[in-house]
Design a protein around this nucleic acid. Structure first.
Length: 971
RNA sequence: CGGCCCGUAGCUCAGCUGGUCAGAGCAGGGCUCUUAUAAAGCUCAGGUCGUGGGUUCGAGUCCCACCGGGCCGACCA
């Protein structure tokens, strides 16, 4: 009875993975692993919540592969690793999907449809692809608790978010302000940068105007300013000059003009430069408003200094309208210039714009140009073409438009953010001071509010009578039950009594969905209303892992909220892989048609292959050029080799009846042959290196080391040990390879969870009391008794010399089958054992040594002279090979007893007679008989050929049934 | 415009704190081994290590500039 179940030579990894998955379904080792570590110290992980209203892609597999690898590793180290799934459920992407489905195109249409119904659909839409996410998560072997995920729309989650905002409010860090954003006047919403990028159109025709701003105290003198958006001119409140820029006053006809010296080329017709005007002299000067009737209250129409002013375009003077430009707004706030809208939310001029009132701004542009020209204020107007943003949904030209927004004063804790960021171990390391560090250095206040519907409502109530503001931090303050739906529109019905006697109403906004996700460390536990211990024990996280695009996303919001609320970092280690692109390095997109579906890859090559490819192909931080061919290569180069080593062991262990569970005497490792000791030393060395690398969160080098170990086990240990598995050393060899493979299965378990478990289970069959799954074992410790650096070095040296010797044979055209008398090593002698390995690998009788060459370089040289005896043996080995081919052609299995007949003239015939025993062994035959010419017996299979010019004939006859070999599964 | 990453054999990529580092795998040609039965081993690449400077006894490996690619951000008044 064989100890091991036979291993089919052909393996389909996708099928194997499904088989293992079914075992997991039945045994639930995920749950068992958690139970097993229930009392162990926690290793805390935060799962970044994806939005489930989109399909998962290959890039999601990437991050999840790294998450799972590190989590399994930590668990095997003995930590308790909880992994709770989460879903990001709010936000504009969800709303857009629902709008699309309902055929709605604006906020007005949503409100006509009804916000309650709209939000109901949003809630449903979030779950749209949840099944696909769960399927993929499961398929890639990512163990994640998806039974009780946190969801950002759950009332307790929202209540925790409210609590956090109240904390921020109490510290004075939550305030209302203006912000300029790209704004679609038709949809009546601001757009995110992401959306903005989808709508840029090049070569958009527009009009650039250069306008005279007459100085109050010098009406004959004008400052020239230039703009491509004439519609912002009625909103002008100031002119900005650059403190470093040199301005000049020029005379042209009766008038004087002021502009930057570098921009004189803008002038039309002859002019005379009267002299320089320092920027400092311009600052503070007042000019006449272009549209006095639209003048706002306050100290407007002044020249101010601003560093952002350039001289690459225009006049070196920037027309400033605070409500219609980001820089403009900041400048106005800084300089005390009034900010007021001249354009309404619908993109049409307000009544104070006089003749333009009611006109859409883009339609008003030509009218404004006409009007300015009529009043002598236009210096010149030029058609231009530039890149301009349009709404990607409705194609309306976007406006930069200041809206009332609520902000978190993140700048107040900037120093703390920088300090805590320093404490984080980033992989790749440059992210800390690079992308993340730079982002924090140029930190601005967080624009928290969104004028939308499906999101966590901003918990601020304002009294219309006395303007009192109140931030609400719990449901109880509103008298709401714990299970109340706190979403719009219901929450907007809730009024609070103001001290002045008025009824406070909630502000209409919801908050940035990114705030929701950054709140997960505390909100997933409904902290501080519940689970205070649970939160305290799981913050900061030991480890998070998301793709690089989360730097300014989730990585930032986690950190920002943690610092704002707790003055702590949110995580200690971040692994952040780069992007996934197609095989040609192109970004995957629907329009390019180069999207690679993860499930297709998984079906074709399996999850282990894809995971392993992600770990080993490039270092984290470089892009992943994924293609089916590259994943297929992993199967060939790694998984199949691993599988074949396993298959080899099982075949021979069964063949020689070795049983690891039997109390058979196995020599202690130190007593085994040098190849065994070498393999065990390689395993120990690799174990140490893998642990060291994984402790540094470097899965790439760890896995590359493992790949090298697998390759060494196959292409050196097994290759050189094959004969030993059939001889006296079979027990030691089987025990060694068995032990090595079991260790390798555990070393590989975090990375290729399916095949490693398959290996483990197979190898454990004959053993009692073993964990049923490799994922319930401990990560291998370094067996210090096995370490043997000297042996590793000596073997490495030996293998270098082997390569050189093989090259010499190649040049001499002597097949390896042909034995040679000696090899001479110019270098330090090997131990007798290693010398035997060398001799066997090179097929030489003897290893000799010579002094090292003067340059100190070790060399090797084969004695290429053939004696008759060596030549005879070479012939016999060739004949043996031909016999093997005949066996194979006859379809005989290993172990099938046979008789061989050989007919050959001398000198080949003599050689056969002289080495009949060797030939018998080579052919695994019971008997080899030489027959004389013309006396060929009747045989089942035969072959003819020549060796070195001598013709031969081989015949083969079976004897009795096959011995007790395992049957193989088909060809 | 700014920040970061990358630019090494036809392709994909290794090369840690400067001194056998000029490498591996794949593709292609040749050869070999084999009761792991097509999986494996060996061999063949004359590559200005993007370009140009610099530091150094010595630089893919450090510094500067430039060119090209990517990502992120800013800007387009």
């Amino acid at each position: 009875m064989p100890a091991f179940d036979p291993v089919p030579a052909q393996v389909s990894f996708p099928e194997l993975e499904q088989r293992i998955q079914r075992l997991w379904d039945a045994e639930d080792p995920f749950e068992a692993a958690l139970r097993q570590r229930a009392q162990a110290p926690a290793f805390t992980f935060y799962e970044g919540p994806p939005t489930a209203n989109g399909r998962p892609g290959v890039h999601h597999v990437l991050a999840r592969a790294f998450k799972d690898g590190f989590l399994r590793y930590q668990q095997m180290l003995g930590r308790r690793v909880e992994r709770r799934a989460g879903w990001d459920t709010h936000g504009l992407p969800v709303e857009l999907e629902v709008e699309r489905r309902l055929g709605l195109h604006s906020k007005a249409e949503i409100e006509r449809h009804g916000v309650a119904a709209f939000n109901r659909l949003c809630r449903q839409s979030v779950a749209e692809f949840i099944g696909e996410w769960e399927q993929l998560t499961r398929r890639i072997g990512f163990w994640l608790d998806m039974q009780s995920p946190y969801r950002t729309y759950d009332p307790p989650y929202i209540e925790s978010v409210w609590w956090s905002l109240k904390q921020i409010w109490d510290r004075g860090w939550l305030y209302q302000g203006y912000r300029v954003s790209p704004y679609c006047p038709r949809c009546q919403t601001s757009l995110s940068t992401h959306e903005l990028n989808q709508g840029y159109r090049e070569d958009t025709p527009d009009t650039a105007v250069t306008v005279r701003f007459r100085l109050v105290d010098e009406p004959q003198t004008s400052i020239l300013a230039w703009t491509t958006t004439p519609w912002t001119l009625p909103g002008n409140v100031g002119l900005a000059v650059g403190p470093e820029i040199e301005y000049v006053r020029v005379r042209q006809g009766a008038e004087r003009l002021i502009l930057a010296r570098e921009r004189l080329s803008l002038l039309q017709g002859p002019y005379e430069v009267e002299g320089p005007v320092p920027a400092s002299e311009l600052v503070g000067r007042r000019y006449q408003p272009l549209y006095p009737q639209a003048a706002p209250e306050g100290d407007a129409f002044r020249v101010v200094a601003a560093t952002f002013v350039s001289t690459t375009e225009g006049t070196g003077v920037v027309h400033t309208a605070g409500a219609y430009g980001e820089d403009d707004l900041l400048l106005c706030q800084q300089e005390g210039l009034p900010v007021r809208h001249t354009v309404g939310l619908d993109g049409c001029f307000l009544p104070m714009a006089g003749a333009f009132a009611g006109l859409f701004v883009k339609d008003a542009d030509p009218r404004i140009v006409e009007d300015l020209e009529g009043r002598g204020l236009l210096y010149r107007a030029d058609p231009i073409r530039h890149t301009y943003p349009f709404c990607w949904r409705c194609e309306t030209p976007l406006l930069y438009y200041a809206l009332t927004s609520w902000f978190i004063r993140t700048t107040a804790v900037k120093e703390r953010l920088l300090v805590h960021n320093q404490s984080v171990q980033w992989v790749p390391a440059h992210l800390r001071d690079g992308r993340m560090g730079n982002w924090l250095e140029s930190l601005q206040d967080w624009n928290l509010s969104r004028d939308r519907y499906w999101g966590t409502p901003l918990p601020i109530w304002i009294c219309p009578d006395c303007d009192a503001q109140r931030c609400v931090g719990s449901f109880a303050e509103l008298g709401l039950p714990a299970d109340a739906d706190p979403h719009k529109p219901f929450i907007d019905e809730v009024q609070l009594a103001c001290a002045c006697g008025g009824a406070m109403r909630r502000v209409p906004q919801v908050i940035d969905a990114w705030y929701d996700s950054g709140a997960m460390p505390y909100a997933q536990w409904h902290y501080p209303f519940e689970n205070a211990d649970r939160f305290a024990g799981a913050h900061p996280a030991d480890f998070i892992c998301e793709a690089i695009d989360q730097t300014r996303g989730w990585f930032f919001t986690l950190l920002a909220e943690s610092v704002l609320l707790f003055d702590q970092p949110a995580y200690r280690h971040v692994v952040s892989p780069s992007h996934v692109v197609d095989g040609a390095g192109q970004k995957m997109s629907k329009s390019r048609g180069n999207i690679i579906e993860p499930l297709a890859l998984l079906d074709a090559h399996g999850a282990d292959a894809l995971r392993w490819w992600f770990y080993t192909t490039v270092t984290v931080g470089q892009e992943y050029r994924v293609s089916p061919e590259r994943i297929a290569e992993v199967v060939k180069r790694f998984l199949l080799i691993l599988w074949n080593v396993q298959s080899f062991l099982v075949t021979y262990a069964n063949l020689c009846g070795w049983d690891p569970g039997a109390a058979e005497a196995v020599p202690a490792p130190a007593e085994r042959s040098v190849l065994d000791r070498w393999l065990l030393a390689r395993v120990a060395q690799t174990t140490a290196e893998v642990r060291r690398r994984m402790d540094l969160y470097d899965a790439t080098v760890a896995c590359r080391q493992l790949a090298q170990l697998v390759d060494d086990a196959s292409t050196w240990y097994v290759r050189r040990s094959r004969a030993r598995f059939r001889g006296e050393e079979a027990t030691a060899a089987c025990a060694t390879l068995h032990q090595a493979l079991r260790t390798m299965a555990r070393l590989l378990a975090p990375f290729v969870p399916f095949v490693s478990d398959a290996l483990w289970r197979q190898l454990s069959v004959p053993l009692a009391g073993q964990p049923s799954s490799v994922h319930l074992t401990d990560y291998p410790e370094v067996r210090s008794d096995d370490l043997d650096p000297e042996l590793l070095e000596a073997m490495a040296r030996l293998r270098r010399l082997v390569e050189e010797a093989h090259a010499q044979r190649e040049r001499a055209r002597l097949p390896l089958r042909q034995p040679l008398a000696a090899v001479t090593v110019a270098g330090a002698p090997f131990s007798a054992e290693l010398a035997a390995v060398l001799a066997e690998e090179l097929n030489v009788r003897e290893v000799r040594y010579a002094p090292v060459p003067a340059d100190g370089r070790e060399t090797v040289s084969l004695d290429l002279a053939l004696t008759p005896e060596l030549r005879d043996e070479g012939w016999v080995r060739t004949l043996g090979r031909r016999g093997q081919e005949l066996r194979r052609a006859a379809g005989l299995r290993p172990g099938q007893p046979i008789d061989f007949y050989v007919e050959a003239a001398d000198p080949l015939g003599a050689a056969v007679l002289g080495q009949a025993e060797r030939l018998t062994t080579l052919l695994f035959a019971d008997r080899v008989q030489r027959v004389t010419q013309g006396a060929r017996p009747a045989v089942e299979h035969s072959a003819e050929g020549t060796i070195d010019g001598t013709a031969y004939w081989l015949g083969l006859v079976r004897r009795g049934p096959a011995s007790s070999l395992p049957a193989e599964d088909g060809p």
